[in-house]
Amino acid sequence: MINSIFSPKNNGFVFSNAFGMAAISISKLLMNDFNGTLIFSEFVIVPFLMGIISAWFWRNVNFGSRQLSAWSCYNTVFAIFLSALILKEGVICLVIVAPLLMCFIILGAFTGRRMFKKNNQTLNASIFVMLFGIFVFDSLSVHHYENKVADTIVINAPPAEVWKYVVAYKRIESPSKYWFFRIGMPSPVQSTADGYYQGAKRKCIFSNGYVFDEKIVTYEENKDLTFDITKQPRDPEIMGHIDILRGQFLLKDNHNGTTTLTGNSWYRLYVFPVWYYDIWAESVTRNVHLRVMEHIKQLAETK
């Protein structure tokens, strides 16, 4: 009975995931600037090591690459389930993180299989020490990343007409085309302002009721609306891993009855590596822009 529970197959799943959870807890203790930040090591080194650990337990199991790949996929599903349960991560975050975890767990499992076939203990120990060193170094490093996304559309209306809908606009009723919004990620639906002047408060309301409190810092009628985000929701979904710092709408008169509307957003990411997560952050921010800007275009052109 005990032997069937603690079989090499099960041990590969259990111990690699136990290591993963322990490593993430340790990294939180080591990090000086911990504020919900999830670092490079947690998505690269830890899953890679999880793959190696599972391969160690499976080293005497006679199976091929197909089964090793499949078991590594199950291991990833197990890790994702634990992340949802223990780390309270949301579904959309897990959809984003799954491909990264899966690839590194597979890579780790195949690397581990080669390592343990060679059975060179010095090499194996060196690899572990090197990866652990990277993990500690990364945990102790400062993590700060900010970026800006800009998008432009042309509206068949003069700037004065467009401006009417830039500061505040009525509720967006059209269904979203972006797949992330369709699977449940909150999308912007309405903007309100308590005045049309610098210093006025503005609110951006999202589809699930989230409200971003904003303050207008630049108000140049028909030209520039810039606002700082003063308060934003933090929840287990993506909003907990990115802060929108500032937004901006720039209007340029094309002198032919049309206006070029540029939407800019500045954000700070709390998840690393940025080479992976910034692709998603840019995509989400861009689609937030486009949803609002397309709505403004529709309102301005209907008049």
Partner: peptide
């Protein structure tokens, strides 16, 4: 490149898993 190959492995597992056996 190794990460890319791991992703290929995942893709192969989905679309043509027999291929992994043939490579073995």
């Amino acid at each position: 490149a190794l990460l890319f190959d791991a992703q290929l492995k995942l893709w192969t597992l989905i679309v043509n898993p027999n291929l992994l056996d043939w490579i073995d």
